[in-house]
């Protein structure tokens, strides 16, 4: 590492002469050690999946969830240092509540991403703090319906324009990823953590911008990608944790929820099968090569 010994990496809030903040770059290293997290956005909703690496046999299977709900309609997954992630989620929940207190309506995914991005960025500015050792994926479905103000009692006038433009829709599925620097973008598909390279390659093969992928397919793809991104040789066991959010007409009715057990197990079965098929094909190819060699 070029930064070592130069002194520019000893504190946050100090740039190196070539314009880098080494503390932030080290934080990224922490992320790269964490289990893979991915998010897939499709027309019907968003899916989050986490490769939860089992660090001890003494941990209860299925416990210690890694994906959290914020408000009712937003989910947050992260890779990297788990305590940092927990704190980040607490903060996101506080933001969502503060938003409700002020505006009497649920926070939009974009607004939460913006606020949390600002929060992450603030931890790159001061001597006294270190950046978050996590990259987070924020998924949400903003209600496309007329959102009632909290505590609102009536429905308002039943006639008149009401400021609505015919044919104009709002709300829908959103996916954001925030990095330790505070940088965030909206994505069709996002991946971070150990297996992000493989996961990104797989995500790019999907048609995420079109209409073709259904939410259920997205769940199955997410499971498959986590299995593909998992490195058997390095890590022992892992658990697949998946959540999803659909629109009000979909299976979760606009809420962020865990993917039902039956669907998750089906997705895992398909993912394992896909992996085995790949292995077989590879084996065949190898065999062909061997045959050629013998010739």
């Amino acid at each position: 590492m070029t930064s070592i010994g130069t002194g520019y990496d000893l504190a946050n809030s100090i740039f190196s002469p070539d314009g880098r903040n080494f503390q932030v770059e080290y934080a990224l290293k922490a992320v790269e050690n964490g289990g893979t997290s991915i998010g897939i956005r499709c027309k019907e909703g968003v899916v989050l999946a986490v490769e939860k690496i089992i660090t001890s046999k003494l941990l209860k299977p299925g416990a210690n969830k890694r994906i959290a709900t914020v408000d009712r309609h937003i989910g947050i997954a992260f890779s990297g240092m788990i305590p940092d992630g927990r704190h980040f989620i607490d903060r996101a929940r506080d933001e969502a509540r503060a938003w409700r207190d002020t505006f009497k309506t649920p926070i939009t995914t974009a607004d939460l991403a913006s606020r949390m991005g600002g929060y992450m960025q603030a931890y790159t500015l001061y001597q006294s703090v270190r950046p978050f050792g996590i990259t987070t994926i924020i998924a949400g479905y903003d209600s496309p319906e007329d959102e009632r103000v909290d505590g609102e009692v009536g429905r308002g006038p039943s006639c008149g324009a009401g400021g609505k433009v015919a044919g104009k829709t709002h709300g829908g599925p959103y996916l954001y990823m925030i990095e330790p620097s505070g940088l965030y973008w909206g994505y069709y598909g996002a991946a971070t953590g150990k297996g992000r390279q493989a996961a990104k390659a797989e995500l790019e093969k999907l048609d995420l911008q079109g209409d073709s992928l259904t939410l259920e397919q997205a769940v199955k793809e997410a499971a498959r990608i986590i299995y593909v991104a998992h490195d058997d040789s390095k890590d022992k066991d892992f658990e697949l944790e998946m959540t999803w959010i659909s629109g009000p007409d979909g299976p979760t009715k606009g809420l962020h929820q865990e993917v039902p057990k039956a669907l998750r197990e089906e997705a895992e079965r398909l993912a394992k099968k896909a992996l085995e098929d790949d292995d077989e094909e590879e084996a065949k190819e190898e065999k062909k090569d061997d045959d050629k060699m013998e010739e």
Binding site: K65, T69, R97, R100, K104, D150, G151
Partner: peptide, 22 residues
């Protein structure tokens, strides 16, 4: 006062769901 209480209960329900999740 009903509106105040329903907002309060809404916050309570969201918090309760967080705890329930855990």
């Amino acid at each position: 006062d009903m509106q105040y209480l329903t907002r309060h209960l809404n916050e309570l329900a969201i918090d309760e769901a967080y705890d329930h999740e855990a």
